[in-house]
Structure formats: structure tokens, C-alpha cells
């Protein structure tokens, strides 16, 4: 279902890109202005809030430009790109999924790491399960969520739990990190292992508990302009914005580590 929706969006984006007007712009951005049309960014689910803000900032600098995002699990996005989804930029939560795209020869230039993320425990605001650390993930009586091992947050969780020797007893293996977080927000699980940035974005319904064991499994976020980008100039401007002082400050404020 999700894939079908994205397909429809991608089609709409392609159509819009075809008739986009060059809006002139006041050229406040790094590229000297003149960016227009539609920029399509496929980004890992954990980037939802900060990328939406940065996209609005880029649109503000270039009035003719429309920035569209598809946020989903990095592996789903990598599959879409290899299946020919029209997009300009891919930002992955995991170098492995970026490698799927670079190995297929679909990127323009080398991917650059623009941020990093570390796992944290998310619990509902009142912490009904009395969770204090990673060891609680072995408690059978708690309702626990992890990401599925097929997606980056799940692979990282598996690595951290294995390294710490915690025999995890999850009740559900979620399809992406936001789905795991939603279950914490609804109070339906006692704890989930998600990214620190997701806890930062979740607000008052969710409390974060730092995981010292996770420091060895920090995940790098690479970004790359795609080889078949319909709007390569805007794509490069977006990547430059991520790497700029402004972009890095926004990422840091959202809870990301900086490379």
C-alpha cells in the first residue's frame, strides 16, 4: 500500500517537474539562485522533521522551487530507486542501503556522511514498565518493540543487544522506526529501541533513556545526488545545505550527532 502511494506521488512529482517554471528566486542559497521546478528527496524515516524544516528553508530561498519528500525505511527507498523511482536525492540511515544504490551505479558522485544517530530507549511518559536500561529488553512480562532486523534501526538494535549479551524478548518487530515510536506514543508498548532523534522529536508523550552500550553502534547517514536526478542543480543545493553551518545546526538541534 505504502509503495503504491509512493508510486503515485512519484508520478505526480514527475508530471509537476515537467511543467515547473523557473521561478528566478532571490538567490540567497549556496548555488547563486535560479533554482526552480520540483526537488524530490527520498529520505530515511528518522529524518522526517529536520528535513521538512530544511526543505521549507530551501523553498524560502528559492521561491520557484518546490521540495517534495518521501520518508520511509531506507531499504524500501533503496528498492524504489533501483526500481527506477524518479528522485533527485537519497538520504539513507545506513551506509549499507546507500551501497545498494551506489553499487547499481545510480548515484552521481560519492555519498557524503552528513549526520549520525545513536540508539536510545523510548518509554511512555510515565514509564509504566519501570524500564531503566538495555537489560530490561530481556523481561518477558513487558511489552517491547524493536525494529525488524531487515531495516537499519533493527540491524543496529540487534548488534547492540548481541554485543551487550541481552537475550531480547520483543513482542513486535516494527517495519520502521516511526512505527515503533508510534506504539510508545500510544502507550501500547513499555519500551522500544529507537534513534535518539526520534525521542527528541516525539515531545512530551515519550521519555528517552540513554544506552551507553549503543555508543559502539553509531549509524552514519550518507546522502547522495542520484544519477538520473530530474533536477540536479536543486539536488546539489540541498546536499550543500545539509553540510552547511545552518544545516548542521538544525541536525544537531534535532538530536543528530555531527560527523
Amino acid at each position: 500500500m505504502r509503495i503504491r502511494d509512493i508510486g503515485a506521488t512519484a508520478l505526480a512529482v514527475a508530471l509537476l517537474a515537467g511543467c515547473g517554471t523557473d521561478g528566478g528566486g532571490r538567490g540567497g542559497g549556496s548555488d547563486g539562485g535560479g533554482l526552480g521546478g520540483t526537488l524530490t528527496v527520498l529520505a530515511a524515516a528518522s529524518l522526517t522533521d529536520v528535513f521538512t524544516d530544511l526543505g521549507a528553508r530551501l523553498e524560502g530561498d528559492h521561491p520557484g522551487l518546490e521540495v517534495r519528500f518521501t520518508f520511509a525505511g531506507s531499504s524500501a527507498l533503496a528498492t524504489q530507486i533501483t526500481q527506477g523511482a524518479p528522485a533527485d536525492v537519497f538520504a539513507s540511515a545506513n551506509p549499507d542501503q546507500m551501497a545498494v544504490v551506489t553499487d547499481a551505479g545510480l548515484t552521481d558522485g560519492e555519498p557524503e556522511v552528513f549526520a549520525a544517530n545513536v540508539l536510545e530507549i523510548a518509554v511512555p511518559a510515565d514509564n509504566p514498565g519501570g524500564v531503566t536500561g538495555l537489560a530490561d529488553f530481556a523481561r518477558e512480562e513487558l511489552t517491547l518493540a524493536l525494529c525488524a532486523p531487515e531495516v537499519p534501526c533493527g540491524a543496529a538494535a540487534e548488534e547492540v543487544l548481541d554485543a551487550a549479551g541481552v537475550p531480547a524478548a520483543p513482542d513486535t518487530l516494527e517495519e520502521d522506526v516511526r512505527a515503533a515510536l508510534t506504539k510508545v506514543e500510544l502507550g501500547e508498548v513499555d519500551a522500544a529501541l529507537v534513534y535518539a532523534t526520534d525521542v527528541a522529536a516525539a515531545g512530551d508523550d515519550v521519555e528517552g533513556i540513554a544506552v551507553p552500550e549503543a555508543e559502539d553502534a553509531v549509524s552514519d547517514y550518507p546522502v547522495c545526488v542520484l544519477a538520473d536526478a530530474p533536477n540536479p542543480a536543486a539536488a546539489r543545493a540541498f546536499v550543500e545545505l545539509l553540510r552547511s553551518g545552518d544545516g548542521q545546526a538544525a541536525l544537531s538541534a534535532a538530536g543528530f550527532r555531527l560527523p
Binding site: G73, S75, A76, T79, A145, A148, E150, V151, P170, D171, T172, L173, E174, E175, K183
Partner: peptide
């Protein structure tokens, strides 16, 4: 949710297999 043996039906297994 999604847990093998308890709640992972075929469509869920297909979706996750698609990831890898």
C-alpha cells in the same frame, strides 16, 4: 505488530522480505 509465528502473516513477511 509483526512477530514471526504470532502475528507475522504472509503480507507482512513479503513486505519485510522486500526490504532485504
Amino acid at each position: 505488530g509483526n512477530f514471526p509465528g504470532t502475528t507475522q502473516t504472509m503480507p507482512l513477511a513479503v513486505y519485510l522480505a522486500l526490504q532485504r
